[in-house]
Design a binder for these strands. Sequence first.
DNA 1: CCAAATGTTTTCCC
DNA 2: CGGGAAAACATTTG
Length: 276
Amino acid sequence: MPEGLEAEIWREALDVVVGRRVADVSVDERVADPGVHAAVGERIESVRRRGKVVLLDTSGPVLALRFGMTGRLVVDGVAPIETLAYASAADRPEWDRLRIRTEPAAASGAVAIRLNDPRRLGRVEVDPDLGRLGPDVLDVSRRELADALRRRSAPVKAALMNQEVVSGLGNLCADEVLFASGIAPSRRADRLDPSDVSALHRAIRRRLPAMLDAGGSTAGVLDPVRRRDLPPCPRRGCGGRLEARRIGGRTTVWCPEHQPPEPSGAAVDAPPVADC
DNA sequence: CCAAATGTTTTCCC
DNA sequence: CGGGAAAACATTTG
């Protein structure tokens, strides 16, 4: 289930391991860099997040956890996010791709950190290079958003999911902020006008923290609706019919009524700018 | 059996 | 070289 919001939930949950020492590490080398073993004996100094990536700063290496589509984290035996939509509800030990035991351990004796990922699309890296990641979605400024979108001719939905543009948005949250801002996902990112960018930025800065409080990327108004037999648009008073199509390689849900495929008349109706 | 699934990475084509 | 679209990856679920 991991988008940036889930990564943030897990980052918070990992605060309890800060200050502990890494006692033992085991990895699935198909997806986790065996260099993680260099962390044994080191102290966990802090836990950070950047986009969808959770970072463990040790007194030795930095460990980067990427969750793919079905990875999830279990901390001291407790899963901060229990239900994995679109993934197995089970938690089989053989799906653990990373295990970190700490000293001290949890009172329960549980493994401190487990990355459990059935599909094995997640990754564990050592001293990762995050240089290509765009500004974090919970922190991005209007200006940064505008600058990044201006150089993309791809559909705005695809641009938003591109981690080099903004880091942390996935399929669900991208649909959600576009829905909230009234922008069709198919519109070219570089053809949004300033009022569109403002609406999008507002949606990102307001909707996402609300969704985070409500449990993550599945807490949006669109989520309960993403299956077959699309219901009417959930926006009150809209009355449109939702549509679903693949955009940017993923199933995209939007309402053509209040997210018109062409820029709304706003730009045309705008009064001439008095400059010079 | 088939389709689809919250994500990257690779490949191919301008 | 660069952007974008599509396929690949791996496994489970409906």
